[in-house]
Amino acid sequence: APHITGMSFKEVACDDPEVEQVALVAVDYLNQHLLHGFKHILNQIDKVKMWNRRPFGVVYELEIDTLETTCHVLDPTPLANCSVRQLTEHAVEGDCDFHVLKQDGQFTVMHSQCHSNPDSAEDVHKVCPSCAILIPFNDTSVVHTVKAALDAFNAQNNGTYFKLVEISRAQNVPLPVSTFVEFVVAATDCTAQEVTDPAKCNLLAEKQYGFCKASLVQRLGGEEVSVACKVFQKQPQPASVNTAGPAPAGDQTETAALPAAPPASLVVGPMV
């Protein structure tokens, strides 16, 4: 291709209304492509450059900071109604680079790359010395708490047997020894009262997910488990899996049991 002289970008204000619109498109794209964990919300636009694209349109090169919300990516709650995870809950931030094309008034995400990091434990303890700190999902206390919570939930549930899909968050505090977990479950073709071998229970074709929060506290008299789950409406299985579309949730269920991933990884699907 011939060398094009004069290629340059234009400096734009980060709080420019159109840049904010581009950032919201980018965050929406991020949430639609997250394979697990929680939805993220825009916190700050760090940098922006606007490039003219030949023959038409402009490309926004954007750096944004996001924050984790309390809504899981499978939760149908609109992002606007999701709460930001507070510092006392050990907040997680995301750093993202996006290239967004604007052409004929339409925005198209051309490139995205995100990383996420939890706040440091030291920073959390500065604002809240007794607050729980994030721990890895493969910690034995986490695995034990999730199993105890899921067993308790299924024992109280006369209907469908729910299977673990993903551990989404895990925290602990030393005194009293307590573990707090958040995890995703899915309905199976087994009934909770009759299940003998959970491995033989299959997820329903029309996926029904639930999001659970549980805690396990070590007391003198033994363990105290509490669990609360919110079951979402059934999600019809798409006719064909589009690799560039929203998270193919059906594929996660077989591999995501007791994941050992760090608690704050921002995994996005294939790029366009």
Binding site: C14, Q44, L67, L87
Partner: peptide, 27 residues
Amino acid sequence: KVVQPGTVGAAGPVAPLCPGRVRHFKI
């Protein structure tokens, strides 16, 4: 007559274009 340089006809402070506002809190 001595005049402090920069006091006559000086432009006001230019607001930085970026980064933008923090919507929630910084980590």
